[in-house]
Design a protein around this nucleic acid. Sequence first.
DNA 1: AATTAAATTTAGATTTGCCTAAATTATTGT
DNA 2: ACAATAATTTAGGCAAATCTAAATTTAATT
Lengths: 221, 221
Amino acid sequence: MLTSTEEDYIKAIYKIAQYQGDKTVSTKNIALELGTSSASVTDMIQKLSDKQLLYYEKYYGVSLTKDGQSTVLKLLRKHRLWESFLHDTLGFSWDQVHEIAEQLEHVQSDELIDRLDRFLGNPKYDPHGDPIPNSNGSFTFRPQCTLAEVKEFHKELHITGVRKHDSGFLQYLSEQKLTPGKSIRLIAVNHFSKMHTIKTDDGSEVQLSMDIARDLLVKTI
Amino acid sequence: MLTSTEEDYIKAIYKIAQYQGDKTVSTKNIALELGTSSASVTDMIQKLSDKQLLYYEKYYGVSLTKDGQSTVLKLLRKHRLWESFLHDTLGFSWDQVHEIAEQLEHVQSDELIDRLDRFLGNPKYDPHGDPIPNSNGSFTFRPQCTLAEVKEFHKELHITGVRKHDSGFLQYLSEQKLTPGKSIRLIAVNHFSKMHTIKTDDGSEVQLSMDIARDLLVKTI
DNA sequence: AATTAAATTTAGATTTGCCTAAATTATTGT
DNA sequence: ACAATAATTTAGGCAAATCTAAATTTAATT
Ligand SMILES: [Mn+2]
Ligand SMILES: [Mn+2]
Ligand SMILES: [Mn+2]
Ligand SMILES: [Mn+2]
């Protein structure tokens, strides 16, 4: 049984590893992600290494063991199912759900989470488009790329998710009606400003900066 | 902002006070209720007294202040709404909900609890028949008594709740189909064994011991 | 290669919640 | 009224999670 603090460390390590393509994760990045001191991180990674959840080589950072991986997948399942509940059932906007799910994910009850899953209709993706692992911890990646990587114009694209979860970014996107499931087309990319012009469902055109385009995930139909 | 441990102490004190008719609550009873040592309780009640949640006189026990009262009512609201969700929405049996609600009640978000309330249709009572305070902390007691106190026979009674919440007791009652909302009649009370004979909805007769009768709450129609 | 800078670990302390054992106060029984 | 008993508090300590400051190691720069 892990404390919620230990769970949050494991999740932070997974997130950083994911982001930087599975290299070893540094003490400093964990401290930055969790807003703690490096000294605290060193203490905790030593403890988690003792518990066989991390591989840890002094001064060279950590990576998750098989046990650490399965721990994090169960947590992501819980987090994303709670986000789906908050969004789909209670009507929270997608920029409000993360903070509350951050607490709910630590509630201990396997039956609770399986019943929640069933009640929600076994959703495959959360409100941000992130995949929800099943009770065995497996989930399917879907073919997707960032809007910035799209090379063909005028082709129909489906918004599948986002690569950033801060509420300002999410609020901006929902104001522009750019949420998972919505269909768009890339009209033009300005060579100097890198601004992306897209056309939405209802025919209106929207300008998106390169920064936005790099964090918006889409799928070609 | 209270820790979940502090919240559990406040709840325990409220529960004991309720049970013993609002006298001052002793260190020992709190320790028994929470399964800790008296020394730990002394530490905590000193802290909660500093925070103005308790009146505390050394060697003479504690009672809740106005702040303590409103804290506990918010907590009971959360606890009972979560129990209703687990029971009514997710289909947990009434003997399973308490333990999980014990965790969920500590999640911090006023909007969450108000949305949950609305989603559930603003229920007035939880699965055990306990009243759910509204967002101002007020709730209405309903006229009820224990089955053991009923003096008239053959009169229609509605089951309104229970005075004990341990899962063995609750399981026994649901096996006998004696849950809140069900209608029964008292047929006889044996003068020696104190066994209560009741007739249920469907006409079948059930024998209940005095212990059960004392913890089953009913209302005359 | 040597020096500087950056990252990491260790040392020492703090807070929260808990414990046992000892000291103190209140209650009970004769 | 006083001794025995029960309840409560205090003393001293421990584990978890955090911090700052100092020491150590690795990485980067001249
Ligand atoms: Mn969390
Ligand atoms: Mn999400
Ligand atoms: Mn609790
Ligand atoms: Mn209840």
